[in-house]
Computed example of a mutant assay.
Amino acid sequence: MVKNTWRRRKMQSKFQAVIFDIDHTLLDTEQFIFQAYVHTLKTYNLPAITEADLKLFMGRSLETTYEEIAPQLNTVELSETHRVFQAKNLHLAIPFPNTLHTLQKIKEHKLKVAAVTTRSIRNSEETLSVTGIMPFIDTVISKEHVSPQELKPHPRPILLALENLKTAPSSAITIGDTIYDIEAGRRAGTKTIGVTYGSSGKHISEAKPDFIVDDIADILSIVLT
C-alpha cells in the first residue's frame, strides 16, 4: 500500500534517480547487525543489549553507537571487532521479499540507483554483492566518503550520490527506514519515501516523508510515474 503525504503539487515527470538506504530498506540486516553487537559486547565483557535496545541506535554509525554503549573503551577497536564478525557472517544479511524484482524493474526503466549508508564501503559492498543487489547499483556512498559530522541526517552523502549519478536533487527520490534517511533526503532537496517494514515501523510517518510504503515493491508506482 502506498500513502501519498505530498500535497504540494503533482509530479510532472518520472524520477531519474533513486537513492536507497541499505540496512532495513534494501536488506533485512536485523540479525546481521544484532549478532555482531552480541559478539562484540561478549568479547569485551560488556553488558548485553536486546534487539529492542538496538532499535534506538538504528541509522547511527558504529563508532557513535559504541561511544554511547562503552565510552570507556576504544570505539575503533570495538567497531573493527564488529565488522570482522560481519565479514565472516554475510549470510545473515538477506534481501527483503521483492527487493531484487523492484530493482530490476527500476533499471529496466533506465533509472540510476545509489545506495547510501553509514556502514563501511567494504562491508556494504560485500553484503550487496552476496545478496545479488550490487549489479543494480550505480554508486555506493559510505562512511568513508564523508566526515563523521556529515553522516546522515546531514545531506552530504545524498548530494555525493547525486553528483556521482549526475542527477539534480529535483529529479531524485530518497528511500529509507529512519528519520535520518528522510531528513538527509529532504535537506538534499530530493523527494522522500519512508518504509514501514524497516526498523522504525509505522513511526516512520513521524519523519513526514513525501510517501510511505509498506512493501519495497510499492515504490514502483511512485518512481516510475
Rank of each mutant, 00 (worst) to 15 (best):
S124M: 02
A188D: 03
H145M: 04
I121C: 00
P97Q: 15
Q35T: 02
V84H: 04
K105I: 14
A115H: 06
I216P: 03
K143W: 02
T25A: 12
K208M: 11
S129R: 08
N164S: 01
E108H: 15
V76Y: 12
L56H: 15
T192E: 12
Q86V: 00
A168T: 11
V146S: 10
V146P: 05
A114L: 04
I121A: 04
L78T: 02
V116D: 08
I22T: 04
V195L: 07
D23G: 01
I173C: 08
K166G: 11
S13Q: 14
I182E: 04
F85C: 01
E108F: 01
T127P: 00
H145A: 02
A48E: 10
F15K: 02
A36T: 00
P95V: 11
N123I: 07
T99I: 13
T75Q: 08
H154S: 07
V130M: 05
Q149V: 03
H109E: 14
V195W: 06
L100F: 00
T75I: 04
Y180W: 13
N89F: 02
D214E: 15
D53Q: 10
S129D: 07
T174L: 00
H24L: 12
V18K: 03
S170C: 01
A172P: 08
S142M: 09
V223M: 05
K152Q: 02
S61N: 01
Q12M: 07
A168H: 10
I106G: 05
A161L: 12
L41K: 11
G194A: 09
S120R: 14
V76S: 13
I219N: 05
F57W: 14
V113F: 11
I33N: 12
F211V: 10
P95Q: 12
L151Y: 06
L159N: 13
S120D: 14
I193P: 06
N45K: 15
I179Y: 11
G59T: 11
T50W: 10
G189Y: 00
R186S: 15
E125N: 11
D181F: 03
P47G: 08
F136I: 03
E108K: 15
F20L: 12
H203E: 14
N4W: 07
N98A: 12
T225C: 12
T5Q: 14
P157H: 13
K202Y: 00
Q86F: 01
I49S: 09
T139Q: 04
P95D: 14
S205C: 11
F20V: 14
N4M: 09
I193A: 11
F34Q: 05
T25M: 03
D28H: 12
G132C: 05
Y66M: 05
T127Y: 02
R7L: 07
S124H: 05
L151C: 13
I222C: 08
D138G: 06
S13I: 10
Q72C: 04
E77I: 07
F15R: 02
R83F: 03
F96E: 01
K166M: 09
Y37I: 03
G185Q: 09
H39V: 00
V140S: 08
K191M: 13
M11Y: 03
K107D: 03
L62S: 08
L26G: 08
I216R: 12
I22K: 06
S170E: 09
S147C: 06
T75V: 13
P71W: 03
L128F: 09
I106Q: 01
K3L: 02
A87E: 14
N98H: 15
E183C: 01
E126F: 07
E206G: 07
N45T: 14
K42D: 01
T117L: 01
T102H: 13
N89Q: 12
